[in-house]
């Protein structure tokens, strides 16, 4: 039997994901999304990845979702329907069941589960970067082994910045 906390947060996350997918109102969807992200952050905490959990809440639940909410309210595209489309929701559930069956089948067949209780696999055992809860461990890896990706990520952010500025300039009408 898994940890009760794990079960609780898993149920919370899945429920929030359901809210995200099924809600008619985009703002409600966004709330579901925030809840789901907080739930995932909680799972990170349970996995001892405290730094990532904090990052998840700060970046995703904080910054990204606020951006989403801004845009949703800016565009204000909701046209509330009179009746909830239950048939469509049922269709969605069918799709979900089909896809999750596929995904679970893949997980079961992938062989990843055989390694559950085992020690660190041999190809990783001499890795000096053992799992650590300290943020310092991240820093060390980021500035040694992952130096190039780190630089590229910085460049990517810069490009995204420039791109967004360019995209959101007022386009000339009919240009």
């Amino acid at each position: 039997m898994p940890d009760p906390l794990f079960v609780f947060f898993a149920a919370l996350t899945l429920g929030a994901a359901g809210l995200l997918v099924l809600s008619r109102n985009a703002v409600t969807s966004a709330m579901g999304m925030i809840l789901a992200l907080v739930g995932i952050a909680a799972e990170f905490f349970l996995l001892d990845a405290y730094f990532l959990g904090v990052l998840q809440i700060l970046v995703y639940a904080g910054a990204v979702m606020v951006l989403f909410l801004f845009i949703i309210m800016l565009l204000n595209t909701d046209k509330p329907e009179t009746k909830y489309p239950w048939m469509k929701a049922a269709g969605g559930l069918a799709v979900f069941l089909f896809l999750s069956a596929g995904v679970i089948a893949l997980i079961l067949h992938s062989g990843a589960l055989d390694k559950v209780a085992g020690p660190t696999p041999p190809e990783l055992s001499n890795n000096p970067a053992e799992f650590s809860t300290a943020a310092k461990a991240f820093g060390r890896l980021l500035y040694t082994k992952y130096m190039l990706p780190l630089q590229m990520a910085g460049l990517l952010l810069l490009l995204a910045l420039v791109g967004v500025v360019n995209l959101s300039k007022d386009a000339k009408p009919n240009a």
């Binding site: 990845a49 990204v64 890795n127 461990a137 991240f138 990520a153 990517l156 995204a160 791109g163 967004v164």
Partner: peptide, 28 residues
């Protein structure tokens, strides 16, 4: 966590970075 290596966690760090950039561009 289960393989006792830091690499996956660092990858998550990058995923979050990329996702943030992607959200900005996508929303624009």
């Amino acid at each position: 966590r289960f393989n006792n290596t830091m690499d996956g966690a660092v990858l998550v760090f990058f995923v979050i970075t990329v996702a943030a950039a992607e959200v900005a561009v996508g929303l624009a």
